[in-house]
Design a binder for these strands. Sequence first.
DNA 1: GAGTCGTGGCT
DNA 2: TAGCCAAGACT
Length: 306
Amino acid sequence: MPDLATPLIAWYAEHRRDLPWRREGFDAWGVLVSEFMLQQTPVTRVIPHLEAWLLRWPRPSDLAADAPAEAVRQWANLGYPRRAIWLHRAAGEIAERHGDVVPRDVEALLALTGIGDYTARAVSVFAYGDRHPVVDTNTRRVLARTVDGRSQPGPPAKRDLAAMAAVLPADDSAAAIVNAAAMELGAVVCTARAPRCGACPLADRCAWRAAGYPDTGDERRRQARYEGSDRQARGAVLRTLRDAAPDPVPLTAVLADWPDGAQRDRAIDSLIADGLAEASDSLLRLPAHPETGATAGRTGSGRSSA
DNA sequence: GAGTCGTGGCT
DNA sequence: TAGCCAAGACT
């Protein structure tokens, strides 16, 4: 295994982008919110939404005190709106279980709603400086090319964490920088399409380059077509509710001209099931009340922090 | 573990 | 232009 850490650290020192969550004093709550927003959403779209969100809700308890409907409205068009519900839920869990302080331990973070292997480690490493492998899609691509000599990574797997752990230096702060640098390199140089190998600090030790840039295929799942999908219908329903809020919308008026009535009804039902909408008295609206009891947290997943 | 889940920019 | 792609997580 070639040394990737040393050239990554040197490259990152010179080329890192100036992003809000890398500013001095950006707190753990800000990092957590940024990571929620960055799940599958490009950096350039996240930045303005992140700043508005943190101005409105500077602490987890501020968000938890508001209705989930307000989180969905503030989320606007960032996409995957279940993240807004999950972030609202996580804020309540942090306020109640952790004294309004974002937890530092990976296990405690994993127990929060909407936080998985990536986000838990990203918060622990980037907000608190602890030493863990942080593996996102960018890092998986960098490792696939430099270490495995492949053009694209395979589907996400647990072994990705071990692969990145093998790259990290022993020092905590240096390890955090290497984690960030691998992600950054994948985001701006070692990109999915048209990588800029001429600007890559790892080119002289890259297995994919040494092999002549072979096309090794792409085992990743392809996204389903969006046009005409249930997802599109859900997006249209939720846009209607956001635009009307705080007023509710008569059920008969929701996507009244949608070409597929059964699909429209599926969309409404699934939004209600996800906690993104509520129906009563033939009206549909954004969720006014936080969930309670069994839906408020994770149980039986085997990942609780107890 | 495979399916599902938004939105918009880029090529 | 139609598809690709984007700091994933949940069921």
